[in-house]
């Protein structure tokens, strides 16, 4: 299914809420998105960085997985 802008906004809100006391985490996420857009990093690079950034937050990782193309997935460690 195709995700919409509202889904992206909702996910970003979720990230901001969870790291309300650590705004640097959201800034780091924006940096990853910037590097992806400028093609400094590719999809596997994004996956690697995001999985480190959101380590210990399986709901955020599962939410992020919904934006990945088929065949890509961050494994959640429980």
């Amino acid at each position: 299914q195709r995700l919409k802008v509202e889904d992206a906004l909702s996910y970003l809100d979720q990230v901001k809420l969870q790291f309300g006391s650590q705004p640097q985490v959201y800034n780091d996420f924006l940096d990853i998105m910037k590097e992806f857009k400028s093609q400094s990093i590719d999809t596997p690079g994004v996956i690697s960085r995001v999985s480190q950034l959101f380590k210990g937050h399986p709901d955020l990782i599962m939410g992020f997985n919904t934006f990945l193309p088929p065949g890509y997935k961050i494994e959640v460690q429980t």
């Binding site: 995700l3 992206a8 906004l9 924006l30 998105m33 857009k37």
Partner: peptide, 19 residues
């Protein structure tokens, strides 16, 4: 880039970056 939804997420994140 064959990751259109990830591009969309990045676009939304970067355009809504108003603080």
């Amino acid at each position: 880039m064959a990751a259109p939804q990830l591009v969309m997420l990045a676009n939304v994140a970067l355009t809504s970056e108003v603080s």
